[in-house]
Amino acid sequence: MLSQDAFRKIDREIAKYPAEQKQSAVMAALAIAQMEQGWLSTETLEEVACYLGMPPVAVYEVASFYNMYDLAPVGKYKITVCTNLPCALSGGVHAADYLKQKLGVGFNETTADGKFTLKEGECMGACGDAPVLLVNNVRMCSFMQPARIDALLGECE
């Protein structure tokens, strides 16, 4: 069940759109739900659908279309590394390899202690800061050479 606080936040999103267009708030509602619950279960999708007056399948379509929604549990820290060409030219793929080796997992895998999930991401619109990675969808980390990756992993508790 989503908290009252989550519903209050969703209400603020609904207010951004014309009264008859509640569905426009679905992307934000799913992001709010995911931030609270860690991932989007079928129950959460149904709860959002019910609240916005949408068919559950329409909510599922949105949740499965956009890459940043997680439809399966992820670790406490989800690290998404950009490996696209501009990033790769400045070490994006090497940063991903370095993380795989340090964490002992591949893409879309979670460490045994449930702490880290590693994902491959597509362009984050920060190519000048490569290598770039995103923590839990909200914190962008720039110029992630080995020493900075080590520091980041160290501060994740």
Binding site: Q21, Q23, A25, V26, E61, V62, Y66, Y69, G121
Partner: peptide, 20 residues
């Protein structure tokens, strides 16, 4: 929330409408 195609203007409109 992570879809390159939404940079295409009509896909962007669909997205604001709460769709794929």
């Amino acid at each position: 929330y992570g879809a390159y195609i939404c940079g295409e203007e009509t896909a962007l409109l669909e997205s604001i409408e709460g769709k794929k």
